[in-house]
Amino acid sequence: MSIMEFISEIIDYGFVQKALFTSVMVGIICGIVGCFIVLRGLALMGDAISHAVLPGVAISFLLDINFFYGAVAAGILTALGIGYVNQNSRIKSDSSIGIVFTAFLALGVLLIRYAHSGVNLDSILFGSLTSVQTSDMWMTLIVGAIVLLVVVLFYKELLISTFDPTMAAAYGLPTKLIHYMLMILLTLVTVASMQTVGVVLVVALLITPASTAYLLTNRLWVMLILSAAFGVISSLAGLYFSFAYDLDSGAVIVLTSFLLFAFIFFFSPKQGVLWRAIRSKRKRNAAS
C-alpha cells in the first residue's frame, strides 16, 4: 500500500483514524515525559514501571474495574517499593529496581493467565495499533491532556528539580513529591502507550527520542519539542507499517526511533561522532 493510499484510508475508515490519534498522542507524551526521565537518569526506572503495570491490569480485570486504575496503582506501588528497598538497605538502586519490577512482572503474567481475562497478553506486551478501540483512543487523549497540562503548569519546578535538586530543596520545593508526581506521569504514559507500543518496548519510546533530542540542543524546551516530534515520527511509521504490511506496531516504532537516533548520533552538527572526528583530525593536522 502506498502512502497516498494509506492517507485516503485514514480519511475513509474510522478505525484508522482512532489509531492515528492514539499513536500521535503517544508519540508526543512519551517524548516529553521521556526528556525528564533521561535527564534525571531514570531510564531503568522507566523500564521497571512500564513492566510493573501488568499485575495491575490483571487485578482490574478480576475486580471488574477499568484497567487504568489498577495499572496506575501498580505503577505507583512499584515506584514506592523501589524507593523503600533502596533507602532501607545497602542494595544499590539498579538492583532494587531489578528485584522489585521483575517480581511485579512475574505476578502479572500469572494473574493474567489465571484471570482467563480474554486480555490478550501479546497485545499488552507488544502493542497492537490495528485493534485500537474508541475507549482506548479517549483514554490516551485524556491522559495526554493531563500530562501536557502538568508539564506546562509545573515546567519551572520540573526544570529546577531536575537540574539542581539541592537548590530546589533548599528554597522549599517538595522534591520527593515532584519525583513521585513524575512517577505517576510515567505510569499514566505507560498505560496510554499499551495499545501502541506495548509495555515491553515503551521504554524505548521514552528514552530514545529524548536522547536523540538531547544530542541536538542546549535548551530544555527545545529538547521537549524535538523529542515529541521524534516520538510522533516514530509512531506514524509504526502506524503505517502495521496497517500496510501487518507488522508489529511496537517493533516498528522502536526501530524507527532507533534509526533517527543513529542518524543524529553520527551526523548531528554539534555532538555527532562523525563531525567530532573530522574536527579533531583537522586540529591535529593544524597542530603538526
Partner: peptide
C-alpha cells in the same frame, strides 16, 4: 527559605544539562 541562598559544591551538578549560562 526565601531569604536564604545556598550554593552547593560544584560536583553535585550535571554539567551536560541542556541549559545555558543566562538561564541558569
Amino acid at each position: 527559605r526565601e531569604n536564604i541562598a545556598y550554593i552547593p559544591q560544584r560536583n553535585n551538578i550535571d554539567w551536560d544539562f541542556p541549559i545555558n549560562v543566562l538561564d541558569t
